[in-house]
Amino acid sequence: MNLDVILFALFAIGAVASAVFTITRRNPVAAAMSLIGHFFMLAGLYLTLHAQFVAVVQVLVYAGAIMVLVVFVIMLLNLGNEQQLTERISMRTTIGTLVAALFAMQVVTGLLARPTGVNTQHADAAMIGATAGIGNALFTTYIFPFEAVSILLLAALIGAVILAKRHLHEGI
């Protein structure tokens, strides 16, 4: 067993387990905590792919900013446990879950039957995953999307303030 196989297995099993934990907990805080664990596992997987920048941003943005927001809202709303996970096992939910599981099986069996044949990482993987490589591409080729994203974030900021404001025409 190589070190990389052990690391991949550790992070992959951790990621799947924490994802399942997230969607099965009744308590929203427990779900949020396991989702934070999931983000850390994904950061580890990004490191095995030589994507250092993405791994660090994953922890900063997802595990830091977004999950703080989620936990803050859970606290603000004072949510308890869900009485039941689902109101009742409805036909629609069952069929939807089955279709989703079928999709997963199809993808997995398809990939196992006909592998992509790409078995080793590119020689430049470590170089492009570093901050220098990302920054060079981001501020030259992708400068317009970068600026567009900043406008999107501004719009989201204003939208969030407007939506969460207390009295908006006494309506919604």
Binding site: N2, D4, L45, T48, L49, L111, L112, T116, N119
Partner: peptide, 11 residues
């Protein structure tokens, strides 16, 4: 860390 095939990540 180079011996994990791409397919594993996709799966």
């Amino acid at each position: 860390l180079q011996s994990i095939p791409l397919d594993w990540y996709l799966i």
